[in-house]
């Protein structure tokens, strides 16, 4: 049976799309047939993060009734299948959200996990992404506005009968001005299932159009996302330790051909 998991946050810019893209790739590495759907039809950027921009058929065309969903599925890294939303505003004009339900029902065929990247806010498109889900992962940064919006999203999702798997705290920093994990758990009343540290490498990966789980498999962010994916599918994950060799040692090894 297909698991439909929506990644939502309430607030924009907390890293939902980045986490969705990387989680999708991570789940694929565990052998799960994963589809990542960008439901952020107005502000789509999943395709940019994965370096898949410029696709002719996207979710826009599917929701406008101009193409079938099969034509909008593209293969991404590690075999993850991606449904980009399209970044043109022209395509957005003809979108009919009512078609999303039907689209999803066709999409879950031959899929183990369908990850939906929900738009920010609580507008109709965001609610459609929430309502379509069986399970929900909330993404938040440890800041008050982000927590506040995550709380609203959680309440709405609960009302819609969606099971909330937990909270992912993104861009965690060692800063006393931010909320602690315990505080976030207490406020949201859902468990924290992953803490992803703040790492500029994530932005760099996005700029290269490559998910960080592939670009930098030894980073803490990758370890956190891989662990989250493993937890979702009940697998064991052993974190990859970063290289402890110094720069000079690496240089010497390189010169000596001992890579």
């Amino acid at each position: 049976m297909t698991r439909v998991i929506t990644i939502a946050s309430g607030k924009g810019g907390v890293g939902k799309t980045t986490i969705t893209a990387n989680l999708g790739v991570a789940l694929s590495t565990y052998g799960e047939r994963t589809v990542v759907l960008d439901a952020d039809i107005a502000m789509a950027n999943l395709e940019l993060i994965l370096g898949m921009e410029g696709k002719s058929v996207t979710l826009h065309e599917v929701l406008a009734g101009e193409a079938s969903i099969e034509d909008a599925i593209y293969e991404g890294p590690s075999g993850v299948r991606i449904v980009p939303a399209g970044i043109s505003l022209e395509g957005l004009r003809n979108v009919k959200l009512d078609r999303l339900e039907e689209t999803l029902s066709r999409l879950i065929e031959d899929t183990d996990i369908l990850l939906i990247d929900a738009p920010a806010g609580l507008e109709k498109d965001a609610l459609a992404a929430l309502a379509a889900a069986d399970e929900l992962i909330l993404v938040t940064t440890p800041e008050v506005p982000s927590i506040s919006d995550a709380l609203k999203t959680k309440i709405i999702a609960t009302k819609l009968g969606v099971t909330i798997l937990g909270v992912v705290i993104n861009r965690e920093q060692h800063d006393k001005t931010f909320l602690t994990v315990d505080e976030i758990e207490t406020i949201l009343e859902v468990p924290v299932i992953s803490v992803i540290p703040d790492d500029p490498e994530v932005s760099r990966s996005a700029a290269f159009g490559e998910p960080i789980v592939i670009k930098n498999p030894k980073s803490q962010v990758t370890n956190s996302i891989m662990k989250l994916a493993a937890d979702l599918v009940g697998e064991q994950y052993h974190p990859i330790e970063p290289d402890k060799k110094g720069v000079i040692t690496k240089l010497i090894d390189g010169l000596m051909g001992r890579r």
Binding site: E172, H174, T180, V181, D182, E185, V195, P197, P239
Partner: peptide, 11 residues
Amino acid sequence: KTVPNLKNETS
């Protein structure tokens, strides 16, 4: 507090 085991470490 350290990030990887933040939850446990904090508690």
